[in-house]
Write a protein that binds this DNA or RNA. Structure first.
Lengths: 143, 143
DNA sequence: TTTATTATTGAGAATTTATATCAATTACAG
DNA sequence: CTGTAATTGATATAAATTCTCAATAATAAA
């Protein structure tokens, strides 16, 4: 199963490197602009392949679609529930390196996702309401 | 919108307390045994309601369906990729209490999910292969 | 540079998980 | 009992992803 260097694969990789924590759909749109008839299945397939070989990172999100990261090394993320954007959570370190045994569990990966309001959205809410109001907007507009 | 004490709600709560980190489908099956014509929508609705009022915990998983926890207090989890079971990750503490500000981010929640092989599955693999072999089985058989 | 091999693709069907709709039902206050 | 509105069941719908498979194309081999 030797890997082949296809245009589609290169375009997907480019998109992940260009966009900020995009999901598959955003990658699809970006790649479609350069190769109009690419299939969604091809985008999904290549995202998985690239993640598998360590070229990109795969971020499992608690809500909505998985996202992809130009940085393959594991790190923690923050998802804003208002604008939907995903940020690197620099304020918290990755728990510990893996693979590694902990209490008999063979830990192969660790996913840490914080959620709440990003600084920009938090500021907006502070102006409008006393407490942190409820707003659930999917990330269709966010980057 | 005062809450009413329905049989369906009680059965859903019972199921979450009886089963170990079940997903909605497992709750549905358990409740169906006692009330055959319950709707899946009712199960989903009540799981959300119960989680919202803090009676149970909701666990966002990186793979597959969300799971529910008789323990409402936030804690970290471990998902075995071989048998699909979900365990409490006692070896790692919940990052920090929330809500709380970190670097300007208003952190409302934190989800930590470890994944790998549970002690039982790890032992199986050690017998069969030198390294930790690849096996991806969905949790249809696991509890 | 042709040919053979097989990884990869595109299109769309299918699956999984979850939510929305809405008339019928039912818990509970009065 | 009766009225009200929370809740339900059935089903449609949605979102995200995977599967299927014949056609295509990247690479090795001749």
């Amino acid at each position: 199963m030797e890997r082949r260097n296809t245009l589609q694969r290169r375009l997907v990789l480019d998109a992940v490197r260009t966009l900020l924590h995009p999901d598959a759909e955003e990658v699809y749109r970006a790649v479609s602009a350069k190769k109009p008839n690419i299939s969604r299945a091809t985008v999904y397939r290549n995202l998985h392949l690239l993640a598998e070989e360590g070229a990109i990172g795969e971020i499992q999100t608690g809500e909505g679609a998985d996202r992809y990261d130009h940085e393959a090394r594991r790190h923690c993320h923050f998802r804003c529930r208002a604008c939907g954007k995903m940020y690197d959570a620099a304020f918290f370190p990755q728990p510990f390196p893996h693979p590694r045994y902990e209490d008999g569990f063979f830990v192969e990966s660790c996913n840490v996702e914080f959620a709440g309001l990003c600084p920009a959205c938090d500021k907006k809410y502070q102006n409008k309401e006393t407490d942190h109001g409820q707003a659930t907007q999917r990330h269709k507009d966010g980057g």
